[in-house]
């Protein structure tokens, strides 16, 4: 990145569609500082009433699981099916459970 002229760091944008809903990743933008970032995010990602809440976070601050670690992170949950309600048998006729 050229130090004196560039598009600024990358930021990730999260929008909340309605109060109470989870924030969802919308995409990324470039911005030089946090004020410009939140405004660019607003102008790009909420033009069609997509948001009642907005987060931006510098992409470099996001910690992600590396693909090489994915097996050890996620596969151990595969055989813990007793964590899901469908695992259990409930006698026919029992309601509201």
């Amino acid at each position: 990145m050229n130090n004196s002229d560039n598009q600024g760091p990358l930021w990730e944008v999260f929008t909340q569609k309605k109060p109470g809903m989870a924030f969802k990743h919308s995409g990324s933008i470039h911005a030089y500082d946090k004020n410009l970032a939140i405004e660019a995010a607003r102008d790009l990602f909420t033009r069609r009433n997509e948001g009642t809440g907005l987060w931006v976070v510098k992409s470099e601050n996001i910690i992600a699981v590396q693909p090489k670690d994915a097996e050890s992170f996620f596969d151990p949950a595969d055989d813990k099916i007793y964590r899901h309600p469908t695992f259990f048998e409930v006698p026919d006729g029992v309601k509201h459970m």
């Binding site: 002229d5 990358l10 990324s28 790009l44």
Partner: peptide, 26 residues
Amino acid sequence: LAKIQDEAGHGLYLYSAAETLGVSRD
């Protein structure tokens, strides 16, 4: 105007997606 603005927005979505391959927008 809204339509042209969308084109700019789509350009941004695509640049960001392309940047994930390790090439900067610059």
